[in-house]
Design a protein around this nucleic acid. Structure first.
Length: 519
RNA sequence: GGCCCUGUCGUCUAGUGGUUUAGGACGUCGCGCUUUCAAUGCGAAAACACGGGUUCGAUUCCCGUCAGGGCCA
């Protein structure tokens, strides 16, 4: 089956992702989209976005927007889709009624489908009966051979109906590119409903028609579609069209090893964005979930994925989400950013938290990084103090290797933007030293900083002075720990010298005095 | 209930009959660096679901059981 791939000619591949806009773009759909995209790119083919919105009640425009925005954010771009069109449109099923009608009419003319007037209650009763005797639930065939007279009578009476497929009684199989031969007895599902009316096909019919009309060559989709595939192939045969090749990806499992649940894992990828995950991290993480490059390499950019991606590396068993690994990859990509870029990425979080404000009259969210941003001014909200982009860059830079998600920048660096720090005085104590000794240390620090030296001198020499002072004491921690707490109010932080340097002489001194008062 | 898919450390995985004392990554734990945290370096614990075959030899092939998952309403 993999040999088939050798026959693929570059440029001929056409794949699609076909989400229904009844929910957000979650991780599962995203990964399917990614693999389709990689496959298309690998063979210089086309990747198409199709919106399967035949379920009018549950489909919502906002979910479609979520899908489009999410995929774009990740850099998964399509060559044809509802927003940009293409030569096989429309790319929303809701706009394809005319196309479907043609096929449905054909099936009807050829007597391959028939009207079924059975009521829901009737069907359900029958289904329950079949399940009770251990048989697969399938249609009884009651309306299959309705006489033309009865048909006309029902139609005239405007009885509600569905269209059913006369499923032939036999085996249907296909060659899955990942799993090999998959075969089922059609007996397992019987006469399936394929359309609600003459213009509205149900999922399987719509799907096979669209895949054919859009000249899709390979369908790469989740394993949950395996049972649909034989049905679609059957319909393709009835329609006299060639079905595409199929590949069923393993599912991404939630933390409970079950399909992604609506409540937790099935959140929109845009929520990951809000939390401060980087698109390259999500892409990298998702690629490694169910695929392996055959080398120990773990870090892949989109471009390297396109190069390295291969069907052979695909896994067939379901893969559980590993949030810690995502976090690890995210932290990696954060460390790779330039300080300017990272600052720009962190800015919205600092602003959203209310710590920092863009300067009066400017946009809430600064424009994308560029020359302009560097010259932009900001304010510390609490003190109305003006700060520069450069100041923020220093702050963010200090925490670059400690950041795992962009959103963490707030709790990590809030002390830079606060007037007063709230922390218990016990925090100032280092190991077994007494209150008195800590007081003495703080007094020493005060004295050093209060020297009438120019600010510049202090800035350049602070670390040297404090370190030599610490050496004198004999225990660095005795000096540095209280200093850290005084400056940050936290038990974990970046180095106190660097913090003092950014804070400036005045604030540093003020905070040491504050700390001294506490004791 | 029926049908289908899957089954290597907690998780993601390498492994396609002997070269394996089953390798890597995340996580966990320990040690080093160190004022804390992080980063980083080193190290440790941790897996072939079970039972039958096939074979000189099975994690690897076949069958069954079990387990997990999916679909059908």
């Amino acid at each position: 089956m993999i040999d088939d791939l050798k026959l693929i000619r570059p440029g001929e591949v056409r794949v699609r992702v076909a989400p229904s806009p009844t929910g957000p773009l979650h991780i599962g759909v995203t990964r399917t989209a990614l693999f389709n995209y990689l496959f298309a790119k690998k063979y210089q083919g086309s990747f198409i976005l199709r919106i399967e919105d035949t379920d009018v009640e549950r489909s919502k425009k906002e979910w479609e927007e979520d899908v489009i925005e999410g995929l774009k954010w990740l850099g998964i771009e399509w060559q044809e889709g509802p927003d940009i069109g293409g030569q096989y449109g429309p790319y929303r099923q809701s706009g394809r009624g005319e196309i479907y009608q043609k096929y449905i009419q054909k099936l009807l003319d050829e007597k391959k489908i028939y009207y079924c007037f059975c009521s829901k209650e009737e069907l359900e009763a029958h289904r329950n009966y079949q399940m009770s005797i251990g048989e697969p639930p399938r249609y009884s065939g009651k309306c299959r051979d309705l006489s033309p007279k009865d048909l006309k009578k029902n139609l005239d009476a405007k009885k509600s109906f569905v269209l059913r497929f006369k499923t032939p009684f036999r085996k249907v199989g296909f060659l899955d590119m990942l799993r090999g031969k998959i075969e089922v007895e059609t007996d397992a599902f019987g006469d399936m409903t394929v359309a609600k009316d003459l213009t509205t096909p149900l999922y399987n019919l719509a799907c096979i028609i669209d895949d054919f009309e859009m000249k899709i060559t390979h369908v790469i989709r989740g394993e949950d579609h395996i049972p649909n595939t034989p049905k679609q192939i059957l319909l393709a045969e009835a329609l006299g069209i060639e079905p595409p090749k199929y590949l069923h990806l393993p599912l991404i499992l939630g933390l409970n090893k079950a399909k992604l649940s609506k409540r937790h894992e099935a959140r929109s990828v845009l929520e990951y964005k809000e939390e401060g995950y980087l698109p390259e991290a999500i892409v990298n993480f998702l690629a490694l979930l169910g695929w392996n490059p055959g080398t120990p390499r773990e870090i892949f950019s989109m471009n390297s994925l396109i190069q390295e991606f291969s069907i052979e590396g695909l896994q067939s068993g379901g893969a559980m989400l590993n949030p810690q690994k995502l976090t690890w990859i995210n932290a990696f990509y954060i460390r790779q950013k330039s300080p300017e870029k990272l600052t720009e990425l962190c800015l919205p979080y600092l602003i959203e938290s209310g710590l920092v404000e863009p300067f009066f009259g400017q946009e809430k969210y600064p424009p994308a990084y560029g020359g302009e941003l560097i010259t932009q001014q900001f304010k510390i909200k609490e003190t109305a103090e003006e700060i520069s982009f450069n100041f923020l860059k220093k702050v963010v830079g200090l925490y670059q290797e400690r950041l795992r998600k962009l959103s963490e920048i707030v709790e990590l660096t809030d002390f830079f933007f606060k007037k007063e720090l709230a922390y218990p005085k016990e925090l100032l104590k280092w190991q077994e030293y007494s209150c008195k000794e800590i007081k003495e240390t703080l007094d020493r620090l005060k004295k050093i900083l209060a020297r009438p030296k120019p600010i510049e001198w202090i800035k350049e020499n602070l670390e040297r002075i404090l370190m030599s002072e610490a050496e004198k004491i004999g225990d660095r921690g005795k000096l540095l720990w209280p200093l850290r707490v005084a400056l940050t109010g936290k038990k974990a932080s970046a180095g106190p010298f660097e913090i003092a340097e950014i804070l400036g002489k005045e604030k540093t001194l003020a905070r040491i005095k504050e700390a001294r008062k506490k004791l």
